[in-house]
Design a protein around this nucleic acid. Structure first.
Lengths: 90, 90
DNA sequence: ATCATAGGCAAGCTATTGCTTGCGTATCAA
DNA sequence: TTGATACGCAAGCAATAGCTTGCCTATGAT
């Protein structure tokens, strides 16, 4: 299992999580398109693919292949580690 | 205001937050000592000082000077941004 | 069978990060 | 006032991260 903190450290990766929060189950190309349209992200497909690999290693994204596409699904469960580790005092 | 995600990305900085969670209001030298004793961290004083600066810029640590020492206090409030941004679904 | 689509792999480059080193400043004790 | 303690500043260095480039594989359509 990878490092969720390192995965969250990159702003593009956080925007990918934002997109999956809005609309889950996107393919790589769909994520590329939405990031460019809605956030002005200009990264290449390979860059996004590498970001998705980091997110997947951290357990924040689960994937499954459907035909020649790959569906990416958000999994926020690992974020619980953060609030368990440093309790948020109001 | 700095980037809390980048601040959390480094393992030494996370251990600093751990120490402040156990015992709050430590000085730089106390943090250095406890990190070395309890976690086997071998970083220099300057390295820890730079880490604390990053944590302070991110708002995760507040400081106040007392004589010639500097008291570091944990502030977990910025962590709320994380759970607000990506709701944790059980 | 041919071609286009969706994605993977790996090497190379550049910017950033974390660390060290050396010196400087402020506070306290003697 | 002299010395020791606690910390700050800034330049330099090595490791890492993110990105690009080029080529490859697999699935689906015609």
């Amino acid at each position: 299992m990878g490092d969720i903190f390192r995965a969250l450290a990159d702003p593009t990766r956080r925007q990918i999580l934002d997109e999956l929060t809005i609309r889950d189950g996107l393919t790589l190309f769909e994520i590329c398109g939405r990031l460019m349209m809605l956030h002005g992200v200009v990264s290449s497909r390979q860059a996004i693919s590498q970001h998705l690999a980091v997110l997947e290693e951290a357990g924040l994204v689960h994937t499954r292949r459907v035909g020649r596409t790959k569906i990416h699904e958000l999994n926020t469960a690992p974020l619980r580690e953060i609030i368990d580790r440093w309790p948020i005092t109001p």
